[in-house]
Amino acid sequence: MGLFPEQPLLLALASLAAALLYLETWAIGQFQLGRPAIVLPLVGLVAGQIELGLWMGLCLELLLLRELPLGATSPPDPAMGGYLGLLVVIPTAGNAEAGLEWRIFCGLLFAIGFSYLAGWHNHAQRQRNTRHWYGRFEAAVQGDQPDQVNKLFLQALVGSFLMAFGFAFLVLALLGPLAAWILSTLAATELNPSYFKWLVLATAIGTGLKLGTGRQPGSLTVVGWVAGAALLLALEGLAA
């Protein structure tokens, strides 16, 4: 039924990393370190499940590429969502029925769901900044108190960190066991999940790659498409 409820220290560490991930993605620096293509293979590698991490990173990176943080929007957050989704399926590796295909299947579904939940969390953080902090900063500015502004800034930053920590902690502690139960229930059926990851990848290519190329593929995309297919098939022919 999942690893985290039985290992509170691991749960706390995983939530701590999630909070750092949140700050890096949305608040400080924004170096894009938390992107699924970087974090998920890394977590998979550490957990000894690199293939799971690679598949989830590949699909989520492309799938949520079109969700842009434009203006005041709080789009789904694949960094946090992917990380939490991967974490809830990693502990089920010990379950003989939950093979790699089922873990990829459920990991992708949970990660997409959690990405939307993480988008809502980001919106809640902004609302908290508006309601709780705006007035305090305004008072410090009107009172000509730069030291107070500095103090409030650090307090608010710690507040953001704690809120992200709490969010990740709750998701892992409450939804983790539920996700593990869903996975083992599905894995016990006769259904075959292996085709799903290809369909997600096809969706990811369709939705993600139209970015920058508009709704229709441009001439360079078509040139690349033909060249890529020809190259791989030619290499295959040569190898044969």
Binding site: I205, G212, P217, V222, G224, G228, L232
Partner: peptide
Amino acid sequence: AFALSAGLFLGVGFAHALQ
């Protein structure tokens, strides 16, 4: 560069699916 790399990705993916 993005349009070209996206196209290459599609093409290789398609050929790989055939393989």
